[in-house]
C-alpha cells in the first residue's frame, strides 16, 4: 500500500451508456498515487477507455465520485481539469494544418491564456525528445505516419505539463518499432519527469512497464 496521497481516485463509480440498460461497470474503486505508471487491463468492451474518459470528464458517472488531487472532478472547471489530466485518444486527432499549428493549438484557447506559447526552438527540442527530429514544423501534420502522429499528439499534450497522462491504447495501431518508441517515451515521461500515467493497452509488453495494474471484470 502506498503512503503517497492519491492523485486520482475512483470511489464506487458506476457507468452506463445513455440509452442502454446494462452498466459498463459498477462500484469501481481505486486510487492512483502521484508518479505511478498504471496499466488498465480487461477484456474488450469492459470499459477501459470509459474509465479514462471518466477521469477527464468526457463522460459522467451514474453514481460515485471521481477525484483529482482530492477534489471531485465535477467541482473543477473542465478546461483546467483537462489541462492537468490529459487524455490522449487512441486515434491521433490532428488539425489539417502544420505541425507547428497543431503543437500550438492549446495555447490559443481561453483557459490556457496564462501560458506562454512555446517558440520554434522549444518545439524543435520537443520534436527531438519525442523522436521526431526529422519532422519539420511547417510540414502538414496529417501527412505524418501513424506512429509519428501518435508521438506528435503525446508531445502536444505534454507541452501543457499535465500531472496525469491518460493514454488510450497508444500503441494499438503501430508496428513493433513505432510501438517500442512510444512506450520508451511514455516510460521516460514517467521516470524522468514524474508524470503519472494511466494507460489502456492490449499489448503485454506495454503492461510490463507499468508499476501497478487495474483489472476490470469484462462483460465480454
Amino acid at each position: 500500500m502506498t503512503t503517497e496521497a492519491p492523485l486520482l481516485t475512483f470511489e464506487a463509480v458506476s457507468f452506463t451508456y445513455p440509452g442502454r440498460t446494462a452498466p459498463v461497470f459498477q462500484d469501481i474503486s481505486f486510487e492512483v498515487a502521484a508518479g505511478r505508471f498504471v496499466s488498465v487491463e480487461g477484456s474488450s468492451g469492459c470499459g477501459k477507455s470509459t474509465l479514462l474518459r471518466l477521469a477527464c470528464r468526457l463522460e459522467a458517472p451514474d453514481a460515485g465520485v471521481v477525484r483529482f488531487a482530492g477534489r471531485p472532478v465535477e467541482a473543477m472547471p473542465p478546461g483546467l481539469l483537462r489541462r492537468r489530466v490529459s487524455y490522449v485518444q487512441q486515434t491521433p486527432a490532428l488539425l489539417a494544418d502544420s505541425v507547428r499549428a497543431n503543437l500550438r493549438l492549446a495555447f490559443g484557447l481561453r483557459v490556457n491564456k496564462d501560458l506562454t506559447a512555446p517558440d520554434d526552438d522549444r518545439l524543435r527540442q520537443g520534436l527531438a525528445e519525442f523522436q521526431l527530429e526529422k519532422v519539420s514544423l511547417d510540414q502538414p501534420a496529417r501527412e505524418l505516419s501513424v506512429g509519428q502522429k501518435q508521438r506528435l499528439c503525446l508531445l502536444r499534450a505534454m507541452l501543457l505539463a499535465p500531472r496525469v497522462l491518460l493514454l488510450d491504447e497508444p500503441t494499438a495501431a503501430l508496428d513493433r518499432e513505432n510501438a517500442r518508441r512510444v512506450l520508451e517515451i511514455v516510460t521516460g515521461l514517467n521516470r524522468a519527469q514524474g508524470v503519472t500515467i494511466v494507460m489502456v493497452s492490449h499489448n503485454a509488453a506495454d503492461a510490463r512497464e507499468a508499476t501497478a495494474r487495474i483489472r476490470l471484470g469484462g462483460r465480454g
Binding site: 483537462r82 487524455y87 484557447l109
Partner: peptide, 11 residues
C-alpha cells in the same frame, strides 16, 4: 476532433 480540442482545455 471536437474531443481533442476539449482535452486540450477548449470549452
Amino acid at each position: 476532433l471536437v474531443e481533442m480540442h476539449l482535452c486540450l482545455g477548449a470549452d
